[in-house]
Amino acid sequence: MNPFEMVVIIVAIIAVSRVLQAKYGGRGVFGRHDRRDGLLNVTPRQQDDAETRRLREEVAQLKERLHVLERITVDKENSLTREIDQLRDR
């Protein structure tokens, strides 16, 4: 087999595999293919949902803490001690 035939066969194999991949939605042997980082994502959907809920709760807590810090820094009167005591009581 000469090099030209080998290149043609390789291109044909790649083309057929791309068509099959497009037809079957890019699903691999191990699970859903994640195009963002090129890694296979094998975590179940429920774990993803639980992780999303946990991250949303964490973001909400961080936003609340940021709001308190903004209020402490912007407040005109000297209420820093009062705010720290309120946070300590939580």
Rank of each mutant, 00 (worst) to 15 (best):
P3G: 02
F4K: 11
E5C: 03
M6P: 00
M6Q: 07
V7N: 05
V7W: 06
V7D: 01
V8A: 13
V8N: 12
I9C: 01
I10E: 10
I10S: 01
I10C: 02
V11Y: 04
V11T: 07
V11N: 07
V11P: 00
A15D: 03
A15T: 11
A15P: 00
S17P: 00
S17G: 09
S17K: 07
V19Y: 03
V19C: 04
V19P: 00
V19L: 13
Q21C: 15
K23N: 02
K23S: 08
K23P: 00
K23M: 12
K23I: 13
Y24L: 09
Y24V: 06
G25A: 06
G25Q: 01
G26F: 13
G26I: 05
G26D: 15
R27V: 04
G28T: 13
G28K: 07
G28M: 11
G31P: 03
G31T: 06
H33G: 01
D34F: 12
D34L: 11
R35I: 07
R36S: 12
D37Y: 11
D37M: 07
G38Q: 04
G38W: 09
L39A: 07
L40F: 08
L40R: 01
T43D: 15
T43C: 03
T43K: 14
P44A: 15
R45Y: 13
R45I: 15
R45G: 02
R45M: 14
Q46L: 12
A50Y: 09
E51T: 08
T52C: 02
T52D: 09
R53M: 12
R56K: 09
R56M: 05
R56I: 03
E57G: 06
E57K: 15
E57M: 13
E57Y: 05
E58T: 02
A60M: 07
Q61P: 00
L62M: 08
K63D: 15
E64F: 08
E64C: 01
R65M: 08
L66H: 11
V68C: 10
L69Y: 03
L69M: 10
L69P: 00
E70R: 15
E70V: 10
R71T: 03
R71D: 01
R71C: 01
I72A: 10
I72Y: 01
T73I: 09
T73V: 11
K76T: 07
K76H: 10
E77I: 12
S79D: 02
S79A: 10
S79C: 10
L80R: 14
L80D: 04
T81G: 11
R82E: 14
R82T: 11
R82W: 01
E83Q: 11
E83H: 15
I84C: 08
I84Y: 02
I84D: 01
D85S: 14
Q86L: 14
Q86F: 04
Q86C: 07
L87E: 04
L87T: 00
D89R: 10
R90K: 07
